[in-house]
Structure formats: C-alpha cells, structure tokens
Design a protein around this nucleic acid. Structure first.
Lengths: 314, 314
DNA sequence: CCCTCTCTGTGTACGGCGTACGCTAGTGAG
DNA sequence: CTCACTAGCGTACGCCGTACACAGAGAGGG
C-alpha cells in the first residue's frame, strides 16, 4: 500500500517526460484529432517534436500500447486502435488456424514449399479452397504463421548451459536442427525484420542475454547476436536447394550421392581449377552441410572469443 | 620430336592406371556398347571396378572429357558425347542469349525476380513469348545464366593483395558488392552445387588458393573456403527481403527508415524482451546489413586466424 | 416464436504464370 | 528448284492466388 502510494506520488511530483508525451497523444486521440487507424507519431518523430531521447519515445509508445489505445502494425508504424466492442462470441469453427497451419507444414516438409498451394492445402483438409481465407489473410501470412508456430515449439533452453560460448552453441544447434527438419523454413524468415516473428524475437533476446556481462558495448553485443543467427539461417538456406534438387531428380539418397560425385569430379576436372580438383579428389575430404555448419560455428565463435578476451583484458 | 617420342614411349612402357581405364572405356564406346547419351561409370564406380583411388578415376574421366568422347552433365553424371558434326552455321539470330540475359537481369534488378516472367521479358524484347524458348531451355536455366554472367563479369582479383586475410576480405567484399547490386542473386545460387556455376567455381578456386601454404589440412582448407563464401551469400539473402519489403510498401527510403523504426520500437516494447528493447532504444546503435557483414566477416576471419596460428605453431 | 444479424463455408471467375505443340516463313546447301 | 533446318509465333493447357457474391447455420433481441 505504502509502496504503491510512494510510486504514484513520485510520478505525480515531477511528471516524467514520457508521461507528458503519453498524455499529449492520448488527448489527441480522445479529442478525435487522431482517429482509429491513423498513425501516431513514430519514435523518431517523437524525439524531434518533444526533444527527448529514443528510449523515452519508445517508453511512451509502449505505455500507450499497454493501455490498449494504440497498436503496433509491423511495416507501417504505431496506429490508433479501433475499440471493437467484444462482438458476440463466434461459434466453434471447423477450420481452426492451428489445423490449417499444421497441415500446411506437413505438406511443405514432405514436398517442399513449392508444392504448398492453397488449393492443395484445402483438398488435404477436405474443404473448399476459399474457406481457408476465412482464417488466414493470404498465403504469405500462412507461411509466416507456419514459421512462427515452429519457433513457438522450440523456445530457447530454460536452463542454459554455463558460459557464453556453450549458450551460443546451444541456440545455434537448436535452430540448425529445426532448419534441417523443415528445409523450407530458412528461406521464409527474415533476420532484418524480426518484428514479423514474435517467437523468433525470443531467440534473439536469449542470445543477447548470453552475450551479457562480457564487457561488450551495446553495439557489438547486438551485432554479435544477430550475426550468429544470420549465419545459421544463411547456411540453412542450402537445406532447401538440396531437398529440392533431390526431389526433382527423383533419386534415392544413394543414387544422389553417386551422381553428385560424378558431376563434381567431371566439373572440377573440366575447368582450370587445379586446387579444387585435387582437394575434391582427395578421399579424406568429408564435406557436407553439417560439417560446414560446425566448422563455421566454431570459427565464428573463435572470432567472438578473440574480441571478448581482448575486451575483458582492457 | 625426341621429346614427344620419349613421352609416348614412357606411357607405353608402364601404361599408367588411368590410361588403362581410359582405353577400356574408349573401347566400349567405339564398340557401340556405350551409345551417345549413356552414362559412363562414375568416379565411385571406377574406384570399385578397377580398384583405384578417386584421384585416378577423376583423371581418367577428365582425359576422356578432353578427348571429347564424354561430357559432364551436372546432376546426372558423365555421359557419352554425341558426335554432332558441325551442322551448317545458323543464320544470325535477332535474339542472342546475351541480349535475353542482360534484359532479364535489368528487370530483376529494378523490380525483383518475382516481376521477371517470360511474358514480361518477351514484351521488353519486342518479341513473342515462345521465341525465348529457342534460346533458353526454360526459366530456371535463364536465371542460372543470369547469375553466371554476373560472376563472369567479376572475376577474382588478378593481382591479389598480400596475406591470406586480405585476400579473403577482398573476395568477400567483391561478392558482397555484387549481391548488393543484384538483390535477387543470392537466393538463386547454390553453394553446395557449384558445378552449376562454372564462373562461381573460379571464385572458390581463388579462395582456396588464398588459403594455401598455411599448413591447413585439405579438409580444413576446403571447409574454410566454402564457409566464407556461404557466409557471404547467406547474409546477402537479406538484400532480397529488404528490397521486396521496400517495394511492396512503395515507400521512399526515408519513410522506410521511419516506419521500420516505429515498428521496431513498438514490437520490442510490446513483448517481454527487455534486453532487445533497451539495446534498440539506444541511439548509439548503428545496425544495418553492411555493418552486420563487416562484423561477421571480421569475426569469422578472426576465427580462421586462431586456427591458422595454432597450426603454424605446431 | 420469429426475425435479423453475423459468421463459416462455397462456386465461379479473373488475371497471371511456365511451357508443350504445331505452324509459318525465311535461308542456304545441294 | 528442292529441301532440310531454323527463328519466330499463336494457341492452349494446367497450374497459381484470391476477389466477390451467395448460401446456410446458429444466436440474440423483440
């Protein structure tokens, strides 16, 4: 009781800058100056108009959002929320989004994303094509939901291992495994637009936490986290082309390896690529996606280690 | 005269294993046992049937290829070449493959790969759609040709800088620049199937050479080269999603940055991601694709350096 | 009890795609 | 002149994503 009173009175005493901004914008909304769907000032605009730091602007928008007055629309900005009185409860739909998503994922897993069409999916679900559009805005959104549901199924480890390196390895391997199980996944997610994938952000957050307390400046810390995740996804892209190639030719794995081998040997021997030819002809070479992944992961983390020990020594 | 005689007699004297294999297969072809289009034994099959090393098998196939008897078909194997007497020279076609490829590249550059359709391309060239198929097997091949022509235009540096690290940086930056200029490029090339891109192999060869003389075992050397190239391509994938997103929303770059900013701030403030929120709210953060690239490149090469100095110390 | 409103599911249709197939017309060798 | 060959073309097929108008079912208000 006393505690909450103290907090309130403190706030009231000096009127924190962010509270002032919140009040201003809220006033504009209730006055009808900003109508539902309109964009409220962006973070950058707020810093200019009110002369505050980005952190303050962000906090103001977050507060408005928690009040339910505004809503974040990815790719557009923050927007005034439509009140939308709770309509009558819709009766149970036969076609739940979850069922759509899981069936779609099964198709993409077994036959590739190219084989996933709305018609095909509807047939699989025993339903008319257009019925899907009652639950999913379109194919793009469906694919996003598929990716999201996968990331939701693999939250970062609850009890992380000790040490930043083991933690980064853990999350990288976790993601690598998922990418391997769903070859279509890597190409559809965007590292640079994480706001489209809330569950993906949990992984970024976890990774950032693993890199905390090492003396890295914020910029380096953020770069290190995103670079690692981008590396994993980038290499995982190859799962898709491998799976597709294997499927296009309709070969068994054994035949595939053989034909790959023949093509490699022939192609390398053909051109003027002596080093490549001699290396690939070497029977001790063991090169595949997994070995590449482990090599790159180790190298990248070795690189991080250099930076970290240098920083901590200072 | 004496020289060539000496070589011949030397060969005749001991009959090198690969020469024996070549003779065997050549015999089967001339005897009609293997007809044009048939697959000759693969590298692996040769090692089994003749009991030789992979290097020998590769050399045998290379010899046959240089003689023009066989041909490497990527994804299939090595195949008996059809003699194909040089037919009458075709009259000058109005539609040269080069013109098709460059026009297609222009479309993909400015409007994205999704906007590149055979119909659109034909219209741009002032020609009927199906005319294209006289010069290009299909769209897949066209895209491959586009990628190839780009790599042909940027051969690896002729006079490489000194030191392995500077060399790797040079080729990585070179590729990064090209990927940036052609956002569609990274998604269409395959690191694991280089035989589809002869000109891409030149880059791999160059990279491998930069990693020579450092005491790395062949396996490590190959992994280091391919990992670097895969890293660059993997991160370059994001050029495409950025370009497409920018185009979909039809925003100017300025508007884009603003809306991105708003979306970031809102999304991060929304979820329970304190570290992410505090870092992205920090105005000193400078995060974009280029800064990520440089950070990852430096880290990866730092990692290579660790391994190399360790190896050379031994 | 009925009317009305809303929501799920559906059929049709449009404009796009890649490309198989068969045709035309020009051309140079014999 | 004949004729094999080729570049270019028109049509058509089977896909795709999805806009739109409509049907039926169930619930709430009168």
């Amino acid at each position: 009781m006393g505690f909450s009173q103290w907090r309130t009175s403190t706030l009231a005493r000096v009127t924190a800058p962010y509270a002032q901004i919140v009040a201003d914008i809220r006033g504009r909304i209730t006055a009808g100056e900003l109508r539902p769907g309109d964009r409220v000032p962006s973070t950058r605009q707020i810093t200019r108009d009110w002369g505050v730091a980005i952190a303050t602007a962000t906090k103001a928008l977050a507060t408005l959002r928690q009040e339910g007055l505004v809503r974040a629309v990815p790719g557009v900005g923050t927007v005034v929320h439509a009140p939308s009185a709770p309509r009558r409860v819709p009766r149970q739909a036969e076609l739940a989004p979850a069922r759509i998503v899981s069936t779609a994922t099964a198709i993409a897993d077994s036959e590739g994303l190219a084989a996933l069409s709305m018609r095909r999916l509807a047939t699989e679900l025993g339903v008319a094509t257009m019925a899907l559009y009652r639950h999913v805005r379109g194919k793009d959104e469906l694919v996003l939901m598929m990716a999201e549901s996968l990331f939701a199924q693999i939250p970062p480890p609850r009890s992380p291992p000790r040490g930043w390196r083991a933690q980064l390895e853990a999350i990288a391997r976790l993601q690598w495994t998922v990418y391997g199980q769903h070859p279509w996944l890597a190409p559809v997610i965007s590292v640079t637009r994480p706001q489209l994938m809330p569950n993906g952000m949990a992984h970024t957050e976890w990774t950032l936490r693993a890199l905390g307390g090492l003396g890295l400046d914020p910029n380096t810390r953020l770069h290190a986290a995103i670079t690692l995740l981008a590396y994993v996804r980038g290499l995982a892209m190859n799962f898709e082309s491998e799976a597709r190639a294997r499927q296009d030719t309709g070969m068994t794995d054994q035949e595939w390896v053989e034909s790959q081998d023949a093509a490699y040997g022939a192609a390398f021997a053909a051109g003027p690529y002596p080093v490549l030819a001699s290396l690939t002809a070497d029977s001790r070479i063991d090169l595949d996606l997994d070995s590449l992944f482990e090599f790159g992961l180790r190298s990248l983390l070795d690189g991080y280690a250099v930076r970290i020990t240098r920083t901590m020594a200072r």
